[in-house]
Design a binder for these strands. Structure first.
Lengths: 178, 178
DNA sequence: TGCTCCATGTAACACGTTACATGATTGC
DNA sequence: GCAATCATGTAACGTGTTACATGGAGCA
């Protein structure tokens, strides 16, 4: 698996506490790799035991338990090693396709409202990505290699959302025909 | 989760043995919902205990243990109930985006060959889908409601593969620029 | 005889989700 | 004082993966 490597990458970009990582996984990187805070704490504990990361009491901890994690050389090595492994293609397991197959097998169930709801969700997410794009990758500003890579990852999300909207709309017309 | 409901749907389309289901999940439906044979046997056992499906010794079992499963009314009801539940949006967790982020954080790692490999995989899958489309949904032939839904699901896969090819090619040009 | 495929299963483990617990800090 | 948020964690369970086991059938 690669949750640990996603966390390593995120930590490399910015040393953080588990809580901050969890919130970042709910925002930027997490749009592409969801994880709950329990998963993240578990991975951090494992990686610290493995010597991939180290933690100190966070500078802004005050009287709290807040800890700050950073990547150790062994973690960098592991991440570089892993990044070059061949990776499995993404699988597209979307519950809605199963529901549509069930609709086809059982007869019309009235999935239209669900599809409309999905379109709204995709539009919201697309707008979120567009806002991030406008903020982080403004048109006309020259970007470095890292920024261009990050921008492409964001674009992937935008393409996916737009494609989902278009496909769902076509699906609605199919359901509308008798 | 919904593996059980995916299996129910598949069984509804055609009563089958666990082995046959596993092979179908490796072909048609499985392009959109992967499952190993162990998962399927586990689900079948659970659903039989729950009264959603029933099994008999398969007609073509011979001296083997082969069993044939079919959906019971309780299973149909459950599937119809589930299909109208609101569903979570699909998450796009692609390992390659994590690897690219790692590349951005660590410096150029040489992911080009991996990306080229992915393009080939996406092209192969696209061709597979096109073959299925030519066989099951030939142009000019009028299709019923069910066939149109199945066709749309297949199209979703084709759109995804084509989008992945295009995006990966653009990503390669980004990596090629210094 | 030995090989491959058919067909089902057990066991162990890794990953993901949900519920709950604990205590400090911040803002009204 | 009270609620919300910050911050970390335990426990239980469900899902997904990997390795291995078992035995029949078909074929050279």
């Amino acid at each position: 698996m690669s949750l640990s490597h996603a966390v390593l990458t995120s930590l490399l970009e910015k040393p953080s506490s588990g809580y901050d990582l969890a919130r970042r996984f709910d925002k930027s990187i997490g749009y592409f790799w969801h994880a709950t805070h329990q998963q993240i704490y578990r991975e951090l504990a494992r990686m610290e035991a493995a010597g991939w990361v180290a933690s100190i009491t966070a500078p802004d901890a005050g009287n709290t338990r807040k800890r700050s994690y950073r990547v150790l050389p062994a973690g960098r090595d592991e991440l570089g090693r892993w990044a070059l492994e061949p990776s499995a293609p993404m699988d597209l397991r979307d519950e809605v396709t199963v529901r549509l197959r069930a609709d086809a097998a059982l007869g019309p169930l009235g999935l239209e409202s669900e599809l409309l709801r999905r379109i709204t969700q995709h539009q919201d997410k697309l707008q979120t990505y567009r806002n991030i794009e406008a903020r982080d990758f403004p048109a006309g500003k020259p970007l470095g290699r890292n920024a261009r890579i990050q921008h492409m990852i964001l674009k992937k999300g935008m393409l996916f959302e737009q494609g989902s909207i278009d496909w769902t709309q076509e699906m609605l017309t199919v359901l509308a025909q008798a």
